[in-house]
Amino acid sequence: CGSGGWTRLAYLDMSDATQNCPSGFRPYQSGGVRACGKHGGGCVSVQFPSNGISYSQICGRVIGYQYGRVDALNNYYIDSHYVEGVSITRGSPRQHVWTLIAGRSELDTSSRSCPCNNGNSDIVPAFIGNNYFCESGTNASSPSTTLYTADPLWDGQGCGSLESPCCNVPGIPWFHRDYGSNTTTDYIELRVCASLSSEDSPVSYYEIY
């Protein structure tokens, strides 16, 4: 995250058997992988209060897995399930911090896959801008309703085929926002979202400072 006084607001490591999913999240287990996703369509949310700490920067990383035929971006507004993946925002009304998009396939150029894939011309919503990472967990053209554990999402590794530009972005797997002289005590919110119950990108690890 760089120098300065950083305070950890959020931490989850599901490889630690003593840790459990946040309240309301759906637990997944496949092989040796444990992860936390959503029930049904829409989003599941967890909020992390700043505990009165005033901050001007946010830094963190999230690792997840693809489940089913995720659709990348749904082009809705920020309060809805605009992404099939993870949305990180601050405060109310929500202000966008970072989006972690789950694309359908490494071999796909449609709007259902990563906008950073070679050959994809999908438009990223203005409120996201360049503040996103995207990855798919499979090269299957029509993914099945299974948890793809071989290729974790948003770790900057395993971007095969058309997806190679998605891993070649500054900072990955760490996201970083600097608000300059604008400080806030807003809480941070992490949502896991997708439009259908058969689509998910459960998280196995996160840390936010």
Results as ranks from 00 to 15, higher is better:
C1N: 03
W6K: 06
R8Y: 00
M14K: 07
M14C: 08
S15L: 03
S15A: 09
T18F: 10
Q19D: 08
N20T: 13
A35W: 00
C36F: 02
G40A: 14
S45A: 14
S50K: 08
I53P: 05
S56A: 12
S56P: 04
I58G: 02
R61I: 00
Y65F: 09
G68E: 05
G68V: 04
R69S: 11
D71G: 08
N74M: 04
I78T: 09
D79H: 08
V86G: 06
S87Y: 02
I88L: 13
S92M: 13
Q95Y: 10
G103E: 08
T109W: 04
S111L: 06
C114V: 03
P115R: 10
C116M: 09
G119C: 11
N120C: 13
A126E: 12
I128R: 13
G129Q: 11
S136E: 07
S142F: 08
S144V: 03
T149G: 00
D151A: 08
L153N: 12
G160P: 00
P165G: 08
P165N: 12
N168T: 08
W174F: 07
R177P: 00
Y179P: 05
G180Y: 13
G180S: 08
S181K: 06
N182M: 06
T183A: 15
I188Q: 09
E189T: 13
A194R: 14
A194Q: 13
S195R: 15
L196H: 15
S198H: 11
S198M: 08
D200F: 02
S201L: 03
Y206C: 06
Y206P: 01
I208Q: 08
Y209G: 04
